[in-house]
């Protein structure tokens, strides 16, 4: 079997258009990242993540001829995933009340946002801190939550976030600042910083 690990995404897209079996390599390259992204923004169980992901990859396959090589394949795939997850949430009418679950790793990354400007209450145990941060996340508006996820958990650059959410770079910068401000404000209200004590 041919080794595709050295090939770029764009090269695999071209090869997939000639041989559908090659698409497997794109799926394998992205299924981990995209399933984690779906779980982070949609907060759904493993089976639903898999269902959404399957739809995402089918959509990617159908639209391969619309892939613009000026855009990174990753941003394009994330954009399709974002749209599918949003459509799912709209269908389920779950955008407002989300039962929040997040990894320890996620919580630690989000605490970094707070630590850059304010002191986090050191007396809180790790478990309490995680619970508090999860509460803060769940209280953010969906747009702000997703932009923080893309920036701090998915570690995307501004240009990539702009391509994924189809918004101008200037708007992305503004949204990130507002999301951070809202995150800190809610954190303070929930006794997560010294400044509120």
């Amino acid at each position: 079997m041919q080794d595709y690990s050295s090939k770029t995404d764009a090269e695999i897209v071209k090869l997939t258009l000639k041989d559908q079996e090659v698409f497997l390599h794109l799926v394998q390259r992205y299924e981990g990242k995209l399933s984690r992204y779906i779980r982070r923004i949609a907060f759904v169980d493993a089976q639903t993540v898999e269902d959404i992901l399957q739809e995402v990859f089918i959509k990617i396959y159908k639209n391969l001829n619309d892939f613009d090589p000026d855009l990174s394949f990753s941003s394009w795939a994330y954009r399709i995933t974002h749209n599918e997850a949003i459509n799912y949430l709209k269908k389920m009418d779950r955008q407002k009340s989300i039962p929040l679950e997040s990894d320890d790793e996620d919580v630690v990354s989000l605490i970094d946002i707070l630590e850059s400007d304010v002191d986090i209450v050191k007396e809180l145990s790790k478990k309490e801190l995680q619970k508090k941060v999860q509460e803060v996340l769940s209280m953010l508006s969906p747009d702000f939550r997703e932009i923080l996820i893309l920036k701090f958990l998915e570690e995307k650059e501004y240009k990539e976030i702009s391509d994924i959410l189809k918004k101008p770079m200037g708007t992305i910068a503004t949204l990130i600042n507002r999301a951070k401000a809202q995150f800190k404000q809610i954190a303070e209200r929930n006794n997560l910083t010294y400044s509120s004590l």
């Binding site: 799926v27 394998q28 299924e31 992901l53 159908k62 001829n65």
Partner: peptide, 26 residues
């Protein structure tokens, strides 16, 4: 091959899904 990639490829083959032709996008 993961379970998901197998499912996707099976679905593509079973439903005879094809990439939408380029001319339609253009």
């Amino acid at each position: 091959m993961t379970k998901l990639s197998k499912n996707i490829l099976d679905k593509i083959k079973k439903d005879k899904i094809k990439p939408i032709p380029r001319w339609q996008f253009i």
